[in-house]
Design a protein around this nucleic acid. Structure first.
Lengths: 116, 116
DNA sequence: CGCGTACATTGCCAACTGGTTATAGAACTG
DNA sequence: CAGTTCTATAACCAGTTGGCAATGTACGCG
């Protein structure tokens, strides 16, 4: 069993895909339903091949899938990788909670010492 | 006011920083407290300059800060960018919820039609 | 001061990215 | 079949990335 290597490769691609604003805009657009490359091209203000490339990156990360309808090819958002990303980030939530707890403790102790 | 451009640049750097497994490992290590580059080098199995570079990327993304203690420089995890990342991803939670709602509806309608 | 330790910086390299234009293919339309 | 539309692919280019070895710098200690 190849252990966590695949996990890492997936997260590599997911976060790399999310690290570009054009691709993030595409994903946000796809929240409200499927879209064609032509539509996304208008939205992105880039050349059509550039947008096709971005879609390929998103597909390779599993964030998007393609569905053919005659000449049109619709891109559809895929949520699983986003959940994987959220799960990774949530590994740090304990820290967030701890920080909030400490804040709360400060407030309840009456002393208003700010973290300098 | 430059609007959402800064937001985008920050998210660019945050997600780019998260897109490397070595940097993710470093962050996970830093959950349990500050660490020096020497410690992180042992953990990463890379050269010391490589780890220094990774730390710089993490710092530029705001995910880590440096605190000097004599010769040692401790890296400390910074949660704000992780929260920003989580906020971005959570923009898609509506979809997740909607999917769960649909699943629930399927289950309650008695018909066990799976999404084909 | 001189030495060792901890870390950053530099220079170099191959590989990858993000963009372009030009071209090719697939599917409807007349 | 010829033309149009939608999309993918190819070829190319500049800039970035991630790794290394070598060197430089800052600090503590004898």
């Amino acid at each position: 069993m190849p252990e966590g290597r695949l996990d890492d490769e997936q997260l590599d691609r997911i976060f790399a895909a999310l690290s570009d604003r054009t691709r993030r805009r595409i994903l946000l657009r796809l929240r409200s339903g499927p879209a064609t490359v032509t539509e996304l091209t208008a939205l992105a203000g880039l050349s059509q091949p550039a947008v096709s490339k971005h879609c390929k990156v998103l597909e390779d990360a599993g964030l998007v899938r393609a569905e053919r309808d005659a000449q049109r090819i619709h891109r559809i958002i895929e949520l699983a990788p986003l959940i994987r990303a959220a799960v990774f980030v949530s590994q740090f939530e304990v820290q967030v909670d701890a920080r909030l707890d400490r804040l709360e403790a400060h407030l309840q102790s009456g002393t208003d010492e700010e973290t300098p």
